[in-house]
């Protein structure tokens, strides 16, 4: 005797959640994959582009995940 179970979801994804997650996606991707000092520049000015603190902190994962670096 075989038994099958089918899961049917009736509700859709909340729009607020999509907007919040899309913002997190864009911000996180920029932090790890593309920041060259931009995020700290409003506080530290040009020095942030020389130090590239976040770039250096995420350096190894940036290379390992395939993002361009240096």
């Amino acid at each position: 005797m075989s038994q099958r179970e089918i899961a049917i979801s009736k509700s859709s994804v909340p729009r607020k959640a999509i907007i919040a997650l899309a913002a997190i996606f864009a911000f996180g991707l920029f932090v790890v994959g593309f920041d060259q000092g931009h995020l700290f520049a409003p506080v530290f000015g040009e020095k942030a582009f020389d130090q590239m603190y976040i770039h250096e902190l995420t350096h190894d994962l940036r290379h390992a995940a395939g993002f361009p670096c240096h």
Partner: peptide, 24 residues
């Protein structure tokens, strides 16, 4: 050593970001 520690943090940040897209 600081950069290797940063790799775990960066993994969590990137994972949260890509995971957000995946979740959507």
């Amino acid at each position: 050593a600081w950069q290797k520690g940063g790799e775990i943090l960066a993994g969590a940040i990137l994972g949260t970001a890509i995971g957000s897209l995946f979740g959507i």
